[in-house]
Amino acid sequence: MPEEPQTEQVEQQPQEQESAQEADGKKDPWSDPEAARKEIEKLRREAAGHRTKVRELEPLAAKAKELEDAQKSEAERLTEQLAAERERATSATRSAVTAKVEALAAKTFADPTDAASALNPSDYVDDSGSIDTDRIKADLGDLLQRKPHWAKAPEGPRRPAPDRTQGSSGNGNRTPNSPEQEFAGWMNRALNGR
């Protein structure tokens, strides 16, 4: 019994192939061994031709890739340079504004760096890069009103600073000023047992 189904399958396959050939209107090259061999040789020649073209075009593709990378690298380098120059220009402008603020604050502030640190330098530069000194003066006045303890002390007679070297030192013995004399005195006291 197992033989009958196999023979039926073998008989059905050739009929299906013939019907497929007739339906396409073309002869199937794979059904005839000689035609299949010719088709395979034709495909091998085409593949060999494609491989030859690829070998010829690979150096050109590599050069195109190198040029693209070089242009990309050049563009990236120029972008980095532009960013660095902008940062330097911003830093120089910030320094100029800070110096201007400190110069204007020196008249009324005890420590002009306090005023410079409290104000934002970028607020005083316009689009052309000019520094707005009138606005700086107005903001310095406002800052002094908010923080009056930053103001410079009024001019007048100054109190003398205390001099601790004057008067008694508490024990009556004054120590010499030079390190050699201090060391000699310490050694004398140590040797004499005091």
Rank of each mutant, 00 (worst) to 15 (best):
R86D: 00
P154K: 14
L144N: 02
K38G: 01
K27P: 05
E85M: 09
L57R: 12
R55H: 08
K27H: 01
P148W: 09
Q9Y: 07
Y124W: 04
Q9M: 05
W150I: 12
A70Q: 13
A118C: 09
S128W: 03
Q71D: 07
P160T: 03
A20Y: 12
A36M: 12
A103E: 14
L104C: 02
R146E: 11
E180Y: 12
E102L: 01
S128Y: 02
E3R: 05
E58W: 04
A36S: 12
A116T: 13
V101C: 11
D123T: 04
T108Q: 10
D123H: 10
V97W: 03
E180G: 06
P59D: 09
A92S: 09
A47F: 09
W186Y: 13
R51K: 05
E11M: 11
G167C: 12
L67Q: 05
R77N: 02
D32T: 13
E56R: 14
N171F: 12
A61I: 06
S95Q: 14
A103N: 11
E66F: 07
P179Q: 10
G185H: 05
R164T: 00
K107Y: 07
K42H: 08
Q71L: 00
T7R: 15
E34L: 10
E22R: 15
D139R: 02
E3N: 07
Q81C: 00
A190N: 11
S117M: 06
Q81N: 01
E41A: 06
P148S: 07
K137E: 15
S31H: 04
P157M: 04
Q15W: 07
A48H: 10
I40Y: 15
G193C: 07
A83F: 03
P160F: 00
T7N: 11
K100W: 04
T113A: 13
A36C: 14
Y124H: 10
R88I: 02
L82F: 01
D69C: 02
R189T: 00
T133R: 08
P33Q: 09
R158F: 08
A23V: 05
R88V: 02
G156H: 06
P59S: 11
R77D: 01
A62F: 03
Q17M: 13
R194I: 02
W186D: 02
R86E: 00
A161D: 01
N192P: 04
D24W: 06
T90V: 13
T133Q: 11
P176N: 14
R44T: 04
